[in-house]
Design a binder for these strands. Structure first.
Lengths: 153, 153
DNA sequence: AAACAACTTCGACTTAGGTCGAGGTCAAGC
DNA sequence: GCTTGACCTCGACCTAAGTCGAAGTTGTTT
């Protein structure tokens, strides 16, 4: 009993979270997680790092970059791991982001639909090539996501 | 009159297509476009390269990688620039891809919705963290797109 | 024929999100 | 007290889709 370990090794965290240990060190380097060290310089993690990792991975799946995640975590008052309240606030702002992305894709699809069969593919006349709105800015080759958390109050 | 130039220089193609000349050389290196050369080793493009470029950029916007585009172009009988018929066939297959992506995002959003307020964020119990279906495979850090053109008959 | 813009190649660099390996240290079991 | 596995750092490497700069050549115009 009382076998609930206070601190976890990097290997344990990797196994429990499903995040490779290489990525854990990488995240630490990026300031997304922190660890304490043993006398022998090995990392030891408090259990709540698991929650933080869950947060990170979910945010990534929503489409946020690690930098965005970093910034989101930084908006937490004490730089703490998100609590239920924080989670609600942040995930609500992700929804906006997701909705926007879904919408952009849908518009693209509809344009494609209206183009099928026209065979135009003209650089000048086809509507598919002439929207400087939506994702034209992040254009080909750089499908980055807008911050979108900025206004996430 | 008769000023319709047979062949275009790289600068002209860049200007007309909106694709930077650096990218044009890059695409050629990748086998997406080809060019002839003058006696002095400069590239000259037939006008239909513009259509091919339109195809490439549109495909990219749909979410295909250059490799996917390369493969798609290779499915064309004579390795030609897509005609109206090819365009219909390929863009129809892109629709499937787009629909799938839209759907995946929608499912993610819905899960997020059902999670807002629960605050669980548990690695084991929250439904957000337990879908090995859909996009779990391309996981965080590698938001690549599935080929999806393979079956595009 | 000389100027000058446009073109050539090649290698290095970029961002994001990591992975891999070498060489060395730490911790736990027997 | 020794073996073995887990851990450490650091730098190199990876993919994708290009960009940038240097040094040299071509093509066009006057």
């Amino acid at each position: 009993m009382s076998k609930l370990p206070e601190m976890l090794t990097i290997g344990q965290v990797a196994e429990r979270s499903g995040v490779p240990h290489t990525a854990l060190r990488f995240y630490e380097e990026r300031g997304l997680i922190t660890s304490e060290r043993t006398a022998g310089n090995q990392r030891r993690y408090p259990r709540h790092v698991l929650r933080r990792l869950a947060f990170i991975r979910t945010a990534q799946r929503v489409g946020l970059s690690l930098e965005d995640v970093h910034d989101a975590l930084a908006t937490l008052p004490d730089n703490r791991t998100p609590t239920k309240t924080d989670w609600s606030r942040l995930s609500a702002s992700w929804q906006v982001e997701l909705d926007a992305r879904i919408d952009a894709l849908r518009r693209l699809r509809d344009r494609l639909t209206s183009c099928i069969g026209c065979g135009c593919l003209s650089l000048r006349s086809c509507s598919l090539h002439n929207f400087d709105d939506e994702q034209a800015a992040d254009g080909p080759g750089a499908p980055k996501l807008k911050p979108a958390l900025e206004g996430g109050t």
